[in-house]
Simulated scan of single mutants.
Amino acid sequence: MKTIYREQASMDNAAFESVVEEVKQEFGLTALERRLLGEALVLLADTRTRALQLTTEFSRRQGRAAPDVHDFQLPAIIDLQRRFCGQQQPLIE
């Protein structure tokens, strides 16, 4: 089952990369828009982090292998925060 997650993760990463490049080229975002995008990415990362925690706890109780951060696209989200929003540090609490 983890293999399916990994395959989906690599496809999603490619999609993220494509979207980032398109937005950079086609849209000149203002500082406000970048800030809003940054806030949205923080909320997405927080939600995905909580989902990872819950899934990990559930998997362990069931005696199954726990998912990892790639299954929830956390590295891709952090990368978007750094590259697209110009944030040096990821804003995951």
Rank of each mutant, 00 (worst) to 15 (best):
Q53A: 14
R50D: 13
L41Q: 04
V23M: 14
P75S: 03
S59Y: 06
E33A: 11
G28V: 14
C85F: 03
V23E: 08
L74H: 01
L37F: 10
E22Q: 15
E39M: 04
D46S: 05
R48C: 06
E7Q: 09
L32I: 12
L91P: 02
L37C: 11
P75N: 07
A15T: 13
T56I: 08
A66C: 06
M11N: 09
V42C: 01
I77M: 03
F58V: 13
R83G: 02
A65G: 12
E39I: 07
L41H: 00
R61D: 15
R83H: 09
T3N: 10
L29W: 04
Q53C: 08
E93N: 10
A14P: 01
A14L: 11
K24F: 14
P75M: 09
M11F: 11
L74M: 05
P90L: 07
V19T: 10
E17G: 00
L52Q: 02
L52V: 05
Q25P: 03
F84Q: 06
R34E: 14
F16D: 13
L43S: 05
A31M: 10
I78P: 03
M11C: 08
V69S: 11
F27T: 12
D12M: 14
E26Q: 13
Q8I: 15
I77C: 05
G86W: 04
E39R: 04
A31P: 00
I77S: 02
A65K: 12
D68V: 03
L80P: 02
L80I: 09
G38S: 08
R83T: 14
T55S: 14
A51K: 06
T47H: 09
A66P: 02
K24V: 13
G38N: 04
P90I: 08
D12T: 15
E26A: 10
I92L: 15
A9T: 07
E39C: 02
A31D: 13
G63V: 13
S10G: 02
A45F: 06
T47C: 09
V19W: 08
R60A: 09
T49R: 07
D68F: 00
L52C: 05
A66K: 03
P75E: 09
I92M: 10
L80Y: 00
T3W: 09
P90W: 07
S18I: 12
R61M: 14
E33M: 12
A40P: 04
R64G: 03
R34G: 01
R6A: 14
R35K: 11
L44C: 08
L36T: 02
F27S: 08
A40H: 09
F58H: 12
